[in-house]
Design a protein around this nucleic acid. Structure first.
Lengths: 179, 179, 179, 179
DNA sequence: TATGAATGAGTCTTCATTCAT
DNA sequence: GATGAATGAAGACTCATTCAT
């Protein structure tokens, strides 16, 4: 791990913490676990973060950011297609196949559910999703789609399998009638 | 607490653990916390359970059972009404207003998401829900409604507010076209 | 160390902590040091005390109590003699020869000097001393004698030797003119 | 802080350390605390001192020197007045009102009490005081006055208030009968 | 020379778990 | 069977100290 490069080291630690959050859940990370995963000495994990809570929060922020980026792809896709349901289904399907996304979503959900300080963070992707969809469908439909997405993500996380595109279409179609 | 009634004492401990799971999350309970809440000596919390994990699992099982019972009311309601969407919306609305239900659902989700041993438990209510609905709508619609319910529950947990009945109707209607 | 006798064990820990306070100073005790000295496992030193600060405070309280007891002997001595300076000198001399007393006094002083929560504790013996003397001399003289005593104690602690009885008499005499 | 003046930087660090010793006690200073207070980078606090102990010792030496300087004023005052008790009382009163002096004295006392390496340092002001007074009163009286001064200082530190000049006079007078 | 990144020893503290009573 | 004392493993966190840059 890049010595004498605080920027990189710090990022590596946050990355390792995020990976672990996804694997074992936000509540189960420890400094030792993160240090080992990041390949840095224990002391480094306390050097850059005021507390484990702080480190956890930053890990969750990284995950939220990754989701944001993925969502941006959805946005661009929708813009390019003029809001086609098929395109949304494609993107959603793709999104669900990335298990990191799914686990990240669930991590943010459960973190936000029991820690009000993290609530805003865990609502970010929903809000963004609603905002994006609002360009093409009414607000209620946008919200409905966001909730649907949440439900599908949870389902995916718990079942470990992704539903079919056809099924996704069934899900999404009723709320994608043009504005 | 019921000094000479092991059965009752055991139940009181599981109840206390379940309450705490809902409040602080499944990962944050401790023997001491549970003992204090249940009003029993520390030793009692280890007497009846092989480990803290065991106690947590039983607490989650209690929560799952409570949800089952609530779901049974939904079932009866649907049976009585012959599968009316309005009735489902009413029940759902009621369900969401019970914050214990919402927190219990989320607890089960996050527990199941990171512990495969608990996955079955956290899928139980969905499966039951699907089964119930399957009497009135096709399987896909039933699954869609279950996912929708999950999404609404998560939304409720994170926002701390319940959506309107009207909105719930918008959500549910497309999938409640008679079989 | 008496197993299964919390009272005794707790007392043994406080005693060990007090001994160490005297040896290394109030700021340098650690749980490990105390555990080793008391001959108990590390966990026992945290079992009975909410924090190291708590343990330190209780150790200082023990020392203060010991001094109180010694002071009581002085009181009885003065009462018996009707407030004779010679008797006071004798007792003071004796007191100073007990290096535990001296070190305890200094520990209380330095603890109180930098921690306002402990100030009252470190003033206790002075207040008691003044109260005792006030039976025989005016308040100003009593206070003067108390300050003198403090000064002699500090001197003894730093020099490691006790001044002569004659010198003590020189010190004390001017303030022992009968009330 | 004086980037290109090692001499000044070193002095600034010792000064900051001395200030902190007075505030939190000799045992509670850290490199980080001192660096922040002095406005210098962490590395500077280890650059000029072989260890934290070394830095602490130098801080205490600075405090001792400050007291020496104050004592010199007392000396000059006594010389000018030919050893008048009133003058000594005035100076003592002044000295006690300077809370830095009081805290410095107490710091030196408690440092010396538990670290024999520092004992000489903490005895310096007493020895000087005795030497000064010895010009005007016998050795025993000088020593008595020094002890009295110590006692008053401790009293001041713990009570946070300074006794009246009148009381100081009562204290000092018996030992200021001309040689 | 000056700096602050890096490290790991050591601290306090919590707590699951065991087990004597 | 019931209790809470006992223990030690493990965790978060601090910081003196070293040393690359």
């Amino acid at each position: 791990m890049a010595k004498r490069d605080p920027q990189a080291r710090r990022a590596a630690i946050v990355k390792a913490a995020a990976d672990l959050v996804i694997e074992v859940g936000p509540e189960r990370i420890t400094h030792r676990l993160v240090a080992e995963r990041a390949g840095v000495p224990l002391g480094s994990t306390t050097q850059y973060f005021t507390s484990l809570d702080d480190l956890r929060t930053q890990a969750l922020q990284l995950l939220a950011k990754e989701i944001d980026d993925d969502l941006d792809a959805v946005r661009r896709s929708l813009v390019a297609s003029g809001g086609s349901p098929a395109l949304l289904v494609d993107r959603l399907h793709e999104y669900l196949h990335n298990s990191r996304n799914v686990a990240a979503d669930v991590s943010l959900m459960s973190a936000g559910a029991f820690d009000s300080d993290l609530r805003e963070l865990s609502l970010r992707w929903q809000n963004n999703f609603v905002e994006i969809l609002n360009e093409y469908v009414g607000h209620d439909s946008a919200l409905a789609l966001a909730m649907l997405a949440d439900g599908v993500v949870v389902h995916t996380a718990l079942h470990g399998t992704v539903v079919s595109k056809d099924f996704l279409h069934t899900l999404v179609a009723p709320f994608m009638a043009q504005k």
